[in-house]
Design a protein around this nucleic acid. Sequence first.
DNA 1: TATCGTTATATCTTTACAAATATAACGATT
DNA 2: AATCGTTATATTTGTAAAGATATAACGATA
Lengths: 112, 112
Amino acid sequence: MSYKIKSRIWIECNEHVLLGEGRVQLLKAIDETGSLSKAAKTLNLSYKKAWNLIDSVNKSAKKPVTINSTGGKGGGGAELTEYGKALILVFDEINQNCWEFLDQQLGKIEDL
Amino acid sequence: MSYKIKSRIWIECNEHVLLGEGRVQLLKAIDETGSLSKAAKTLNLSYKKAWNLIDSVNKSAKKPVTINSTGGKGGGGAELTEYGKALILVFDEINQNCWEFLDQQLGKIEDL
DNA sequence: TATCGTTATATCTTTACAAATATAACGATT
DNA sequence: AATCGTTATATTTGTAAAGATATAACGATA
């Protein structure tokens, strides 16, 4: 069996984590469901954890990533800003590029 | 303050972790001290944890990474094999290349 | 065969983090 | 003003990882 190089990347701002793979996944689920609680449910994580993540995302980012509304029709909801949508697209792109880059480097290990 | 992209890479073999930053640091300390217990002490981690790490490294690698000797003059010791030395060199090289690659990608986020 | 400092291993304790639970606040709609 | 499903928040409980402690095994040396 041969070696594999794995990686995790994340974006920080002011020493605080803004985006990682888990947060991106959560943002995508919010985009699909229109609600933080539904997004948490589909990802099988507690509402509290999901809320903490989104709170941290919005506190770390330079511009709002989600708009959360409380009360009103349907009880409220959450949706991504245009900035948020752009962020997850770029994150995925960089992450994929990183994987491809690391795959290229794999030979250096197997040839030892 | 501006964004930063951070990363962790690690090498796996058969779904088991072979090398990560912590393990590389430990291997370097073994190389410098000639002993697993001394290496653990300098890195401020318990001997048990250090031993578990090295055990996992050697079980995951295709060829031995350290030679551990018990008993004898000085009580024994641990040293890196040539393969182990080569591995940590290559790991550091790939890791640094990855950082540089990610730094190049940073503009895509800042320009949003 | 007694000594030494190391590797090897088991067991218990503590602690930090995740999970579960409960409840308050919100505001458009009726 | 009563209702609804959501966001927001505090408090408690459970669990797994980390840490501490203890001890066995090892083998060259003297």
